[in-house]
Nucleic acid binder design. Structure first.
Lengths: 339, 339
DNA sequence: GCGTATCAGACAAACGTTTTACCAGGAGTG
DNA sequence: CACTCCTGGTAAAACGTTTGTCTGATACGC
């Protein structure tokens, strides 16, 4: 491994000068030819800075951590992929952390976060207690950005969840549906509230009844969605369409209808959130509202890096590209029941 | 941040002694009471070792990289989760790397791998050129373990792919099927070859015909599986069952049958590889052979850590727990066509 | 009572950077 | 001519560990 001393020797200057030049120190005074000699020498010996040494001195390692609840959740996976790309484009490396594990005790938290191994933290919360503990612990210790949820003290970047929910609901309204249910998200997250708001706004704007008996917690799993939808479908008056605030709840809603001998989409139209890849392989294919998950990961990293430079926590909402309805087989035009 | 000097001061010894005691140096000689005092002091001041300094000195950072092709592939996600847990249990952190990006040029490879930022590399290959480039580059530079594929020079840990393929095929044979097709894996991977072997062995052992016209490359995507299966189903003589060497190819096979008005499982039984979570939400639910993907990630990390300690590359095959058939709706007993 | 192990820990030199403090020599200024 | 000021760097001190080498005291064999 060629170190900075090798470069200095090859260029005929001292290591201090090499360091300044290579790091683009604005306050450095070298004549152009020396600068050029140093760069040439660095290339010649194939200089690879030792990040451990740099980290020790700078108290920064060039490493970001992304804390999620479940790596195998396909929705999170898309965010991870986006964050990973952005980090590496900026010369940072991204590592994964487990929220439950971080929250378990202070020791495991500080083992990951403290001790100069991580410069910043991205937290993708699920609205449970563990999230709040991690967020509280992180605040003040390490620059932190909340992904797809809002936070007062920390930086945050969110999708336009309300607009997406509104568009999804309006898609159903546009198909002629009037009785539209809602499967809410689990946990106390702002994105969950926003999706509920979006549904409600769309309903009220269209002058349709907001029936709280058709609103249930659909959760993050298909099984939870199935149960919740079941209790709605078992009512005498049931909706002809439902917006599910997560993709898995939508899958569960379809299963619940099928359990009761109802046809999807003839008897019940279902729209879900996020265009995960398996939505198109379900039978019928799941209609969803697509949100830019990769861009979410992307922007989150960029916000965190900005936070590292000049510590002003920002709060951004991603509106570009806008949410998009991907129409597949689970939504269809409302047809009044033959009687 | 409490450093080692604070501990030393609190315990009334020098930093060198603290370091040896806390790291469990076997060659250290301290009296038990001193040892206890040091541990107590470390707890009292909440000592957090600075990993950058440690890394600089030891030329080891306590960081492992896992290189995959696609984070959002649910099969890989399970491996990632297992590796993540094992790494953190051993006090290491795991970061993700992108094989295509690593392979792009030597600079991006060495930025991740070199310069003391990563102690070891886990490579989950897909059998394409990029894998071979990364593996070749890694050999000699950084301890590397190949995950679920074999390699000569580097360590490797694989699942018992041949046994699993054999079990899957025998499940179909046990249901009375005689004409059984195969959708092979894409790419030049040992696990792909093993699965093909397993199918072939099961067929020959049962005295059934191995019809090469029923063997196709099913690939890693549902679309590829659909196309491949289509060319088989369009033949005059077609199999009554098929083993797909990947779960997505299996999904594609079901779609191909459906395209042609065939019923699954009445006209075609399908079994796939790996019990990913959405298999049960397909309609009908996909029968699969389940392999311990989490354990794969787990053992891979352990092998890599062993490799770091005493550099003997090992090759292990995970046989515990054994593959398991998860029967759902896409396989059924063979019934001769009414004529 | 003398030489020699052994014990229990001290001392100090790394590791490869970054960064603070400093300096020689020439140019400008009064 | 004495002085400041700039230019283009140099020299050395950190950063917080780990680890090889020493040392002062106690125990042991004879």
């Amino acid at each position: 491994m060629a170190g900075i001393v090798d470069v200095a020797a090859a260029a005929g200057v001292t290591v201090g000068t090499v360091s300044r030049v290579l790091n683009g120190d604005p306050a450095v005074r070298v004549r152009p030819e020396t600068r050029e000699r140093i760069h040439a020498a660095a290339r010649a010996v194939n200089y690879t800075p030792n990040r451990a040494a740099r980290a020790l001195r700078r108290a920064r390692l060039g490493t970001l951590a992304l804390a999620v609840h479940d790596v195998s959740n396909p929705v999170y996976a898309a965010v991870i992929a986006g964050a990973q790309q952005a980090a590496s484009r900026h010369g940072y490396v991204l590592m994964l952390a487990d929220v439950p594990e971080l929250a378990r005790d202070a020791a495991s938290f500080s083992r990951v976060v403290n001790s100069g191994i991580v410069d910043g933290l991205l937290l993708l919360p699920a609205g449970i207690e563990a999230d709040r503990r991690v967020a509280a612990e992180a605040a003040g210790i390490v620059p932190t950005v909340i992904v797809n949820d809002s936070a007062d003290a920390l930086g945050s970047v969110t999708l336009d969840n309300e607009a997406a929910a509104r568009m999804a609901t309006e898609h159903l309204i546009g198909l002629g549906h009037r009785d539209i249910g809602l499967l809410e998200l689990d946990g106390e997250t702002e994105r969950g509230f926003a999706r509920t708001r979006g549904w409600e706004v769309a309903m009220r704007t269209a002058g349709l009844p907001v029936n709280v008996a058709w609103v249930r917690r659909g959760g993050h799993t298909a099984e939870a969605g199935r149960q919740a939808m079941g209790t709605v479908l078992d009512r005498a008056d049931r909706p002809t369409a439902v917006m599910a605030a997560s993709v898995l709840a939508a899958v569960g809603a379809v299963a619940a209808a099928r359990d009761r001998g109802l046809d999807v989409p003839a008897d019940l139209s279902v729209i879900g959130f996020h265009d995960v890849f398996f939505a198109q392989y379900l039978q019928p294919g799941l209609t969803v509202v697509e949100l830019p998950l990769q861009a979410l990961g992307h922007r989150s990293v960029e916000l965190l890096l900005a936070l590292l430079d000049h510590g002003e926590p920002e709060h951004v909402v991603i509106t570009e590209p806008p949410p998009r309805i991907v129409v597949r087989g689970t939504t269809t035009r409302y047809r009044p029941p033959a009687r």
